[in-house]
Nucleic acid binder design. Structure first.
Length: 607
RNA sequence: CGGGCUGUGGCGCAGCUUGGUUAGCGCGCUUGACUGGGGGUCAAGAGGUCGGGAGUUCGAAUCUCCCCAGCCCGACCA
C-alpha cells in the first residue's frame, strides 16, 4: 500500500452524524521516509510544492461562474472544446465526489465494474442504437476496418454481461461503474458543464419483476438524495422525459442555476415539479357556441401568422379561437400537429408520444408538395392521408379558424370533432410561467437548472436485444428488467461551484473540498511562525484533516486572496503578531468571520 | 449546421482602419534590494513561429484568399 490514494479514506466527520470521533492516523506516516523527494501523505500539501496555477484576472470566454472560478482557481484547464484537464485540486474534488458516490451506491448493494470505453459497432447494432445515436456518438474505424464507437453510456455492455445470468435466483443485481463517456456535442459550453468527454457514474439494476425494479428505483432515488446532500447542493428531483430511448418513471435531479440548460416547472404551493419537457398545467377553457354552421372559406391575403390573422379578424380569430397547424417529419412520416393558436408546442412531448427518434419540422417544399400551401395557410380540415396529432386543449372546440391549405385562404366555423380526422389526442403544449398547477391550482414557477443526475426505468429493451433472459421459478423464460441511473461527476463539481461561491471565489462544502483547512503563514522568515505552522500542520494531518500549508513567500494579500479563491472552508492564519500571545486566526470561508483562538485549540475548533 | 465574433509571451489586452527600423502595455515569471496583516516599491532580466498556409508588395501582425482553433447566440442534445 502506497502513501497516496489509500490513506485518504477518513470519512469526514460532518457527513453522517455517526462519526464524531477524531480519527488518528496510526503507524508510520509517509513523511517519515527519508530522502529529498519523499512522498507526502495524501492529505498534506505545501503550497510552495503544489501545482495550483491561480489566475489573477478572470479568464476571457468564461461566462458561467463555475467555469470562471474553476479556471481561475487552478482546478481545471481546457485542452480543446469540450475536453478539460483536471488539475490536482480538481482531481481531489472529483475523487471525493467519486468516493461519495461509491459509498452510497455500495450502500444500496451496488457492485462496481469497470467496462471498456470503446465498443464494437456490433454491440450497438444489436440494440439498434448504432443508427439511432447519429452524430452524437464518436465512431472510429480500426486497422482491420472494423467500426467502433466510444461509449456514450453502457446499457449494451452491461446487458451483454447480464446474459450470463440464467436463473432468477441470481437476481436482483445492482451493477455500476464510474467511467469516461464520450458524446460529440455539437456545441460544448460553460466549461465543464457541457463537454464531449466526461466521467459518469452509471448504474443498472437487474430484476426479475417490475416490483423489484420499483424497489431498486426507489432505493436509487433515496441514495441520490443522500449523494447530492453530501455534495452540499440542493438537487431537486423532477419528473422528466426519458428521452429517445424510452423508459418510464424518469426522474432528473436538478440544481438551480442560471448556467443550467434545462427549464424546470415547480408549483409554489404543492410538491409538483417537472422538467418543462414534461410539465403540464391547467389551461383556461374558452367558451364556444353549442353548434356551428358548415365551415366556410374566406380570403386572408398576405396573412401568414396567428397574430396577423387575429388583428385582421378580431371578432372571429382571436388567437385562442385559431388552430395552429404545424408539420413535422417523424422518422420520415409527414405528420400534422395541431395546437391552439396561442399555445406553443413542446417538441419533446411530441417525440415522447409518437416514440419518434428523428423528429424535425418539415421543410417548406415538403409541405407544399403534400398540402398544397405554405406555412401560414395550413390546416387539417379534410386531410386524411397524413396522421394528425392534436393537443388536448383543442378537444371539443368549435367555431375555430384554421388555414385552408391554399395560400391566402382560411376556414372559419371549424368544429374540430366534426371537421378534422384527429388520429391522436395528446398533451403537447409547453407550460408558461404563472399558469396554474394541475394538482392544486398553485402558481407555477419556471427556473433554470443543471441536470446532475437522472434515473429511469428501462424495462426489457436491452435485455431482449442482448438475450439477457432468465428462467423464473416456474421454468419460464423472462427477460431481465432493467433500470438505469446516472450521475455526471464533473458536472456535479461545477454545480456545487455554481451553488456555492461568492465574489471572492469558491466556497466548498465540507465533503467535497480539496482540503479541509489551509494554514496561511505570514512572514516565512520568522522562525517562530514557521515552527508554529509546521507543528499545527502536523497536528491537523495527524488528526485526519486534509491540510494545505501556504508557505509561499508571498505578500499576505496574495495569500488571503488565493485562499479565498480556491475556497478551502477554514483558514488558519499564523503571524508574528498573534504568535506572541500564542493565538492564531481562525477564518470561516463561508461567512468570512474571523476569531482568534489559541494555537492548541485549532484542531478542536474544526468540525 | 446557420448568425455574430476572436486568435499578438503564462493570463488580460493595445497595435491592424492608413503596410515601413528593434512588436508594445498591465499582471505574472527570474535575480537582487527595500519591505512585511489584504494582490507593495525600486532596479536588472527572461520570455513572442503576431493561429497555420498561400498570395500581393522592395517590405505584411497590418492588405487578399484558403484552412484551423476557440467564444457567444440559435438549431441540436439520454
Amino acid at each position: 500500500m502506497g502513501c497516496g490514494g489509500e490513506s485518504w479514506g477518513r470519512t469526514p466527520r460532518a457527513s453522517r452524524g455517526d462519526s464524531q470521533l477524531k480519527t488518528h492516523h496510526s503507524g508510520p506516516t509517509c513523511s517519515e521516509r527519508s530522502g529529498p523527494h519523499r512522498p507526502l501523505p495524501w492529505r498534506a500539501m505545501r503550497w510552495s510544492q503544489a501545482f495550483i496555477p491561480t489566475l489573477r484576472d478572470d479568464p476571457a470566454n468564461a461566462e458561467a461562474a463555475s467555469h470562471r472560478l474553476l479556471l481561475r482557481a487552478g482546478y481545471v484547464r481546457q485542452l480543446s472544446a469540450g475536453h478539460y484537464s483536471m488539475l490536482p485540486l480538481g482531481q481531489r474534488v472529483r475523487q471525493k465526489i467519486d468516493r461519495i458516490i461509491r459509498e452510497e451506491i455500495d450502500g444500496i448493494g451496488g457492485q462496481q465494474f469497470h467496462l471498456p470505453a470503446m465498443h464494437p459497432a456490433e454491440l450497438w447494432k444489436r440494440s439498434g442504437r448504432w443508427d439511432v445515436m447519429g452524430e452524437e456518438m464518436f465512431r472510429l474505424v480500426d486497422r482491420r476496418g472494423s467500426d467502433n464507437a466510444l461509449g456514450m453510456t453502457h446499457e449494451e455492455v452491461f446487458a451483454q454481461l447480464a446474459s450470463e445470468i440464467s436463473s432468477y435466483k441470481q437476481l436482483p443485481q445492482l451493477w455500476y461503474q464510474i467511467q469516461t463517456k464520450f458524446r460529440d456535442e455539437p456545441r460544448p459550453k460553460s466549461g465543464v458543464l457541457r463537454v464531449r468527454e466526461f466521467t459518469m457514474k452509471d448504474s443498472y439494476s437487474l430484476d426479475l419483476t417490475w416490483e423489484g425494479l420499483d424497489e431498486q428505483f426507489d432505493r436509487h432515488h433515496a441514495a441520490y438524495q443522500r449523494i447530492f446532500s453530501r455534495f452540499g447542493v440542493d438537487a431537486v428531483d423532477v419528473e422528466a422525459s426519458s428521452g429517445a430511448m424510452g423508459g418510464s418513471d424518469s426522474v432528473e435531479f436538478m440544481v438551480r442555476s442560471d448556467a443550467g440548460e434545462d427549464w424546470i416547472v415547480t408549483c409554489a404551493t404543492c410538491d409538483y415539479r417537472a422538467n418543462l419537457e414534461r410539465a403540464t398545467s391547467q389551461v383556461e377553457g374558452v367558451d364556444d357556441p353549442d353548434a356551428v354552421p358548415e365551415a366556410i372559406r374566406f380570403a386572408t391575403p398576405e396573412i401568414r401568422t396567428i397574430a396577423a390573422l387575429a388583428e385582421a379578424f378580431p371578432e372571429i380569430a382571436a388567437p385562442d379561437r385559431q388552430i395552429k397547424t404545424l408539420v413535422y417529419m417523424i422518422d420520415g412520416s409527414f405528420t400534422l400537429v395541431m395546437m391552439r393558436g396561442d399555445h406553443a408546442l413542446q417538441e419533446q412531448k411530441l417525440q415522447d408520444v409518437t416514440g419518434g427518434i428523428d423528429v424535425r419540422p418539415a421543410q417548406a417544399d415538403e409541405i407544399r408538395e403534400r398540402l398544397g400551401a405554405l406555412p401560414g395557410s395550413l390546416g387539417a380540415v379534410g386531410v386524411t392521408e397524413h396522421p394528425i396529432i392534436a393537443d388536448r386543449a383543442l378537444k371539443g372546440r368549435r367555431a375555430l379558424v384554421t388555414g385552408a391549405n391554399e395560400d391566402d385562404w382560411h376556414l372559419a366555423n371549424v368544429d374540430v370533432d366534426r371537421d378534422i380526422a384527429v388520429g391522436r389526442w395528446a398533451d403537447l403544449r409547453e407550460v408558461v410561467e404563472g399558469e396554474s398547477c394541475m394538482v392544486d391550482g398553485g402558481l407555477l414557477d419556471l427556473w433554470k437548472g443543471i441536470e446532475v443526475g437522472h434515473i429511469f426505468k428501462l424495462g426489457t429493451k436491452y435485455s431482449e436485444a442482448m438475450a439477457a433472459i432468465v428462467q423464473d421459478e416456474n421454468g419460464e423464460s423472462k427477460p431481465i428488467i432493467m433500470g438505469s441511473y446516472g450521475i455526471g461527476l464533473e458536472r456535479s463539481m461545477a454545480a456545487v461551484v455554481e451553488a456555492s461561491h461568492d465574489d471572492k471565489g469558491i466556497v466548498w462544502p465540507w465533503e467535497v473540498t480539496p482540503y479541509h483547512v489551509i494554514i496561511t503563514l505570514l512572514r516565512q522568515q520568522d522562525e517562530a511562525v514557521v515552527a508554529a505552522g509546521d507543528q499545527l500542520y502536523e497536528e491537523l494531518i495527524a488528526a485526519g484533516y486534509e491540510a494545505l500549508l501556504d508557505d509561499r513567500a508571498e505578500r499576505p494579500g496574495v495569500k488571503f486572496a488565493d485562499a479565498e479563491l480556491i475556497g478551502v472552508p477554514y483558514r488558519i492564519t499564523i503571524g508574528p503578531r498573534g504568535l506572541e500571545s500564542g493565538v492564531a486566526e481562525f477564518t470561516t470561508r463561508s461567512t468570512m468571520e474571523t476569531i482568534e483562538i489559541p494555537l492548541d485549540a485549532v484542531v478542536d475548533q474544526l468540525p
